[in-house]
């Protein structure tokens, strides 16, 4: 048996011990990195979506340069991959997948959810996307085109979904509360109901 096939918790403890011993990192640095990473969450992306729904200028910025739009909301993007934003319209719906691994716009959506990393999601999204959407109860009318975006290289992608009907005059905060993780991946759509 190869040394790296050790049980994972033990392997982590051993790797951590060696990295600490060699001064490559410290316990404090690991804790700080965990804290920073835990700060990324779908609530960040939801704030961007809500702003885009009420502010045409912000929408234009978001579609042109997602990372700058995120920074404009106070989300740190320095050193991170470019963020692409996919604009849904009444005639076009986007669905994001990474068939090769699990590339995900972590700064604005947080850690990728379990399902996004699963073999079933990665396999089905590009071949049976409408069937896959039904797992979330999402049914696209036949006249709406579905565009699956396979995140294979340097970009990270989030979906800017359609603003739900019945939300005229709502505040940005109230709108942001309607937007969930899956809506920004494209497996579901926000609703005011």
């Amino acid at each position: 048996m190869s040394v790296v096939e050790a049980e994972s918790e033990r392997l982590l403890a051993a790797v951590r011990a060696l990295l600490l011993e060699k001064g490559i990192t410290s316990r404090e640095e690991i804790a700080e990195r965990i804290r920073i990473t835990d700060g990324g969450s779908p609530a960040q992306g939801a704030r961007m979506v809500a702003r885009a729904w009420v502010d045409p200028q912000y929408r234009a910025l978001m579609l042109a340069d997602g990372a700058r739009a995120a920074e404009a909301m106070g989300i740190p993007m320095r050193g991170l991959p470019p963020l692409g934003v996919l604009e849904d319209t009444p005639a076009l719906h986007h669905l994001v997948v990474c068939t090769l691994c699990s590339c995900y716009p972590r700064a604005v959506l947080g850690y990728p959810p379990f399902w996004f990393k699963s073999a079933a999601y990665r396999a089905r999204a590009v071949r049976d996307p409408r069937g896959l959407l039904s797992e979330w109860g999402t049914v696209l009318p036949a006249e709406v085109k579905l565009r699956v975006v396979d995140s294979t290289a340097d970009y990270r992608w989030m979906v800017l979904p359609l603003r739900p009907a019945g939300t005229d005059g709502w505040s940005e905060d109230a709108l942001a509360a309607l937007v969930h993780e899956g809506d920004m991946v494209g497996v579901s759509v926000p609703s005011a109901g």
Binding site: V149, T152, A153
Partner: peptide, 12 residues
């Protein structure tokens, strides 16, 4: 298989 008009977009 799939629905006519649907697309897959890939970074290449």
């Amino acid at each position: 298989e799939g629905m006519a008009g649907d697309e897959v977009v890939v970074e290449i």
